[in-house]
């Protein structure tokens, strides 16, 4: 891990509706980092990834990629350095794995060009890094969930990005395929030096595989730090409104949830509400 900043979010803000906005999102991403963004549903995690990739423009603030504002860069140039694996719904996509991965070369092609030998090297690298040699001519829809996820990761790799963002890469996968994907991400980070930002719901996995965690709540960053610094009772109470016990497995912290504080609070609210109604 170096100290070179590759991606900066500065005071990102987005006002969509009174109930949903992004505010004061500021962080720096160092080269070679693995960062996980965690937080409850609707806390704005996916929106932040979309702001970082210029899929949405912020109302104020900016994103710097290698010191340049992405708002002023073309999509092609951005896509050569930074890409995201969105949550994919690919049931209707009728492609072989290889054809899907080939699309990853698009940022390097002019509008009239098709892939050539030079592109093949990047494609072959993506295929071997994700262990898809045996599956590369299979139609995408004939693969299992984990294999499909690997195929999409391979497409992103064919872009030869420096930074890869992943939006819940393990959702809908069983535990062994979840681990397979997480190991793949770790390997890409270690061996190929790709900087990773991902959204994860499994906090124990986030702690195990990330160098740093960013916790979001109500559209803003509430805490950030290493898993060791972050994992404590107050963190789980504040960010997820649960009661949790923290344990340690060698260096890695993990937690076991005990009970939801959300329910107790809403019960209290309901009781309070009844009082108001009966009182009124």
């Amino acid at each position: 891990m170096g100290n070179e900043v590759v991606l900066t979010a500065e005071q990102l803000a987005l006002y969509r509706s009174p109930s949903f906005s992004i505010d004061e999102v500021t962080f720096e991403l160092l080269k070679g980092d693995i960062v996980s963004i965690v937080g409850a549903n609707g806390s704005g995690k996916s929106t932040v990834l979309r702001l970082l990739t210029k899929l949405i423009d912020p109302d104020s603030g900016c994103v710097l990629l290698d010191g340049r504002q992405i708002a002023e860069m073309s999509r092609k140039v951005i896509a050569q350095k930074l890409t995201m694996l969105p949550q994919v719904h690919d049931h209707h996509i009728d492609l072989t794995v290889y054809d899907l991965i080939k699309h990853g070369r698009n940022p390097y092609l002019k509008w009239y060009e098709t892939t050539d030998e030079g592109d093949r090297q990047a494609i072959d690298f993506a295929v071997s890094a994700t262990n898809l040699e045996q599956l590369k001519y299979r139609p995408l829809h004939s693969l299992s969930g984990g294999e499909r996820q690997r195929a999409w990761i391979a497409m992103s790799l064919a872009q030869t990005p420096e930074i890869l963002l992943l939006d819940e890469p393990t959702t809908y996968l069983d535990i062994s395929h979840q681990l397979e994907v997480m190991e793949l991400i770790r390997r890409l980070n270690k061996e190929n030096g790709i900087t990773i930002v991902m959204i994860l719901h499994d906090l124990n996995q986030a702690a195990k595989y990330s160098h740093r965690l960013i916790a979001m709540k109500n559209g803003t960053i509430v805490r950030q730090g290493t898993p060791g610094e972050m994992f404590n009772k107050e963190f789980f109470k504040e960010v997820f409104e649960i009661d949790a016990t923290i344990y340690h497995d060698e260096e890695t912290p993990f937690f076991i949830p005990r009970s939801s504080l959300l329910k107790q609070r809403s019960e209290k609210k309901a009781v309070a509400g009844e009082k108001i109604i009966s009182g009124g």
Binding site: K54, L55, S74, R75, V77, A79, T83, P86, I93, H103
Partner: peptide, 27 residues
């Protein structure tokens, strides 16, 4: 003949096409 790649990229959905550096509206 030049429309092939553009049409194929659009099949992936707007978001993925944009992440691949494609000018979705233009194509």
């Amino acid at each position: 003949a030049f429309a092939v790649r553009h049409a194929n990229l659009l099949l992936l959905g707007d978001e993925v096409a944009k992440l691949l550096g494609h000018h979705v509206q233009r194509s």
